[in-house]
Design a protein around this nucleic acid. Structure first.
Length: 156
DNA sequence: GCCAACGTTGGC
DNA sequence: GCCAACGTTGGC
């Protein structure tokens, strides 16, 4: 049973092109408990991931990846740097990451405005106001719809 | 760059 | 355990 997810990344930090170049990466630095729980408990190897560019011009869905390694401790919490968390005990890590591997880029970016405007995507979390989770579930029908949109020409 | 929302922090 | 302050998110 494959599940579908959406992960957000700022392209000036880590873009779909970076993932294509790297092949796979560990999804480190997530410091939100709900997103952590999703990665720790729900994301399974082989699950499909919609890669989303946030804080971009324009923001939107840009590619597809797959979960290649299930949740394991995020070591960046233990080393000095922007993801350091002094409260995370290496014996009992607070934070978890998964590995994702590149699958493909969408034929074109499907922007957030297009996602929000599409009636078939009503209720998709990323289109809701103030849905800021960087790792969130996607219904299969929503995922399929985004792919279908990406295969059509961009709206005028 | 603005700013609203919301999660987190920490004093009490 | 309340809650005000603070930091972050992320579209605009």
């Amino acid at each position: 049973m494959v599940s579908y997810w959406l992960i957000k990344s700022e392209p000036n930090v880590y873009s779909i092109d970076d993932l294509e170049r790297d092949g796979s990466t560990h999804w480190d630095g997530v410091r939100n408990y709900e997103a952590r729980n999703t990665m720790r408990d729900l994301m399974k190897r082989g699950d499909v991931v919609l890669f989303y560019h946030s804080n971009a011009k324009p923001p939107g869905a840009v590619g597809i990846a797959r979960v290649s390694k299930e949740g394991y401790p995020d070591h960046t919490a233990f080393i000095q740097g922007k993801y350091f968390d002094p409260k995370s005990d290496p014996e009992n890590p607070t934070w978890v990451m998964v590995d994702v591997e590149f699958d493909e880029k969408l034929p074109r970016l499907v922007s957030i405005s297009e996602l929000k405007a599409d009636p078939e995507l009503e209720g998709m979390p990323v289109t809701l106001p103030f849905q800021r989770l960087s790792v969130q579930p996607v219904a299969k029908r929503h995922f399929d719809r985004v792919l279908a949109l990406a295969k059509k020409p961009a709206p005028a």
